[in-house]
Amino acid sequence: MTIRSRRETVTFRHPFRIRGIERLLPAGAYEVITDEETIEGLTFSAYRRIATMIMVPAEGVRDSMEMLSIGSVDLANAQAADASAA
Rank of each mutant, 00 (worst) to 15 (best):
A51S: 15
S64T: 12
E22L: 08
E37F: 08
L75M: 06
A85F: 10
A80W: 09
D74S: 13
E37Q: 10
G41C: 01
I18D: 01
V32M: 03
V32P: 05
D35R: 10
E59H: 15
A58P: 06
P26L: 03
H14D: 13
D82R: 05
E40N: 07
A29V: 02
L75S: 05
E31I: 13
S72L: 15
A27R: 11
V32I: 15
T43Y: 06
E40K: 02
M65K: 07
R62S: 05
I54W: 05
D35P: 09
F12I: 05
S45P: 04
P26H: 06
A46F: 08
L25R: 15
H14A: 09
E36G: 03
R19N: 09
I39D: 08
A27W: 13
P57Q: 01
V32T: 07
L42V: 09
H14F: 08
P15L: 03
A27E: 13
D35A: 15
R6K: 12
I21T: 06
A85H: 11
I54D: 02
D74V: 05
A80Q: 10
S64Q: 15
L68S: 08
I33P: 00
S64Y: 02
V73L: 12
A85M: 01
T9D: 07
I50C: 14
R23V: 04
R7Q: 14
V56L: 01
E36V: 03
L68Y: 07
E31N: 04
E36L: 05
G60L: 11
R49F: 12
R17D: 12
E37C: 09
S64H: 15
S72F: 06
E59T: 14
R13P: 05
L75I: 11
M65R: 11
T2G: 07
R19C: 02
R7D: 13
V56N: 01
L25A: 15
M55N: 09
E40H: 08
A86H: 04
T38R: 03
P15S: 02
R6D: 11
E40P: 14
I50Q: 10
V10I: 06
I54Q: 00
Y47I: 05
E59L: 15
T34E: 07
G28L: 02
A27T: 12
T43P: 04
T38F: 07
T11W: 06
Q79K: 14
A85S: 04
E22Q: 12
E66S: 05
Q79P: 09
I50R: 08
A51G: 07
R7H: 13
E22T: 11
G28C: 01
T38A: 02
I54A: 02
S69M: 10
D74Y: 04
A51H: 09
E59F: 13
R7C: 14
I39G: 06
T38I: 08
A83Q: 15
F12D: 02
A86K: 09
F12P: 01
T52H: 00
D63E: 12
I21K: 01
F12S: 00
T11L: 06
G28P: 01
S69R: 15
V73P: 02
V56T: 07
I18L: 02
